[in-house]
Design a binder for these strands. Structure first.
Length: 462
RNA sequence: GGCCCCGUCGUCUAGCGGUUAGGAUCCAUGGUUUUCAUCCAUGUUACAGGAGUUCAAUUCUCCUCGGGGUCACCA
């Protein structure tokens, strides 16, 4: 069974980089009828918070991603890690190091001055003397001093590291006994049965260290897939101002979850020429072997296009429901179908869509100057009056076609072009020259409101 | 700086020795729409550079250049 995981450290909200690796992991597990588990990496007690964990869960919920089983918190697994540290100590695969921080800093500075690689010098590796007084030791692993460490990566291929280039006896437990990242990751991934690790390629150079742990403990090494980074438009790591914002901010901006997911799944992964993937298709088609090797640049153009696509293809019921989050309540509006049909093709996002609806639904308080000058001329007033009179006498105006016939009558009787009535009417009803079909607008706002707006416009612009 | 990864249109990508280098997005133009948007059509734009290997390189190898990641008692 395939078991994948998402293992964030709760130091902030979930952003799209994390979400993408979570999505990849999720899809791969689901496709294989496997499990997708969540582990919170909160071993650094100073830097993490419950709020951050809650924020991640909230984002998952919005996007419809569900983890399997209970959440594992590393902070609650101290005894487990202690057990393995003890074991390694007893097997002489790890040792206590009494070097002080000052001593370490000094060592490092000397190495830098000599242009050597900065690394621990193994001072206590084979120490059997009397431990210095008053120093709480850290625990270091006895890492191999030479030889090759091979990472068999499903995305990058085989990546080979030389032990002498990259390894030293790194710390696996701090002086306060708390275990460190590379140590607990290996233990937890093994204990949780995770056999396919999909994560950012910023972890690629950590992987040899984790392999050292796996081997010291005799654990089976999982399959790794290191996913390239997402960069900003300058090709640098994503920062808060250029996209690494809270995933929930995308909801506020009016993006639909399926658009965000579809956007992210295509960032670094592809399936031929296909662009549109619903969740079922993603689950069926995603395969980490098709992940790109190179980093991609984050850019909202395609996300906007996808979002517009998904909005256009949403049912009006769903849209009406979603729009309540953007301060637009349409549930009781009798012409909501007509309204929604009229604006769903025009909006890039739900926020914009809500604004359009509100604009149509509310009586204009001002009129665009250019629009008035261009389309609301003196000759327009008798035309509007004629139309108004017809409307006033009309008994059954409900649908756009009803209003359209009325406009047609005016055009025919006055022997004018359609534009002579269309544009002035548009300005009168919306205060500007752009928007949905004018007959549609009238149907949505109704006969009384239409006549009111015509009267308002004539009063204000003549 | 050491080590590691990467390099096809502006962007997301297809390609896996022989292609007019494909799609999508963006942009532009035209059509449809009384307007706007949608939709449809058309168009501009790419193999980082240099050596090899080969009958043939975007594709394989090496070098250069460029970009990124990582080198903690952070994760």
């Amino acid at each position: 069974m395939v078991v994948t995981r998402f293992a964030p450290s709760p130091t902030g909200y979930l952003h799209i980089g994390g979400l993408r690796t979570a999505l990849f992991s999720y899809l791969w597990a689901k496709q294989n009828n496997g499990r997708f588990v969540l582990r919170i990496e909160d071993t650094d007690k100073k830097r993490n918070s419950q709020e951050a964990t809650d924020a991640i869960l909230k984002a998952f919920q919005w996007l419809g991603l569900k983890h399997d089983g209970e959440i594992t918190y590393q902070s609650q697994r101290d005894e487990i890690y202690a057990k393995y540290i003890k074991q390694l100590l007893e097997q002489d695969k790890a040792y206590k190091c009494y070097m002080t921080k000052e001593e370490l800093t000094e060592l490092r500075e000397t190495q830098m001055a000599n242009k050597e690689r900065t690394m621990y010098n193994g001072k206590y590796r084979d120490f059997d003397g009397v431990a210095p007084e008053g120093i709480e030791p850290v625990i270091r692993i006895k890492a191999p001093l030479s030889g090759e460490i091979l990472v068999r990566d499903g995305v990058k291929g085989d990546v080979s590291f030389q032990a002498q280039d990259i390894l030293d006896d790194f710390v696996i437990a701090r002086s306060d006994g708390a275990p460190t990242y590379n140590f607990v990751v290996a233990i937890d991934d093994y204990l949780m049965g995770i056999n396919e690790v999909i994560r950012g390629d910023d972890h690629l150079s950590n992987t040899p260290k984790q392999i050292v742990i796996y081997e010291a403990l005799g654990f089976e090494i999982p399959k790794f897939y290191h996913v390239p980074m997402i960069h900003n438009s300058k090709g640098k790591k994503l920062s808060k101002r250029d996209g690494a914002t809270d995933v929930m901010a995308y909801k506020e901006m009016g993006y639909k979850p399926e658009a965000l997911l579809n956007f992210l799944v295509r960032l670094g992964w592809s399936h031929g020429d296909q662009e549109i993937f619903n969740m079922a298709e993603m689950q069926e088609l995603f395969n980490p072997k098709d992940i790109n090797k190179s980093a991609s640049i984050y850019n909202t153009e395609k996300l906007d296009w996808l979002n517009a696509h998904y909005i256009k293809n949403s049912s009006n019921n769903e849209l009406a429901e979603l729009l309540t989050d953007y301060d637009l309540v349409l549930t009781s509006h009798d012409k909501k179908e007509i309204l929604l049909d009229a604006i769903k093709d025009r909006a890039k996002n739900l926020q914009e869509m809500a604004d359009m609806a509100k604009e149509i639904l509310s009586t204009p308080t001002s009129y665009d100057k250019k629009a008035v000058k261009k389309a609301f001329k003196d000759e327009s007033i008798p035309i509007l009056n004629t139309f108004g009179a017809k409307l006033s006498n009309s008994e059954s105006c409900h649908l756009p076609t009803d209003y359209h016939s009325l406009m047609q009558e005016v055009v025919d009787e006055m022997k004018i072009g359609f534009g002579k009535i269309g544009m002035p009417l548009r300005v009168a009803l919306l205060g500007k020259m752009t928007g949905p079909g004018i007959d549609v607008v009238m149907a949505v706002i109704g006969k009384d409101e239409t006549m009111q707006r015509i009267a308002n416009a004539i009063a204000a612009n003549s």
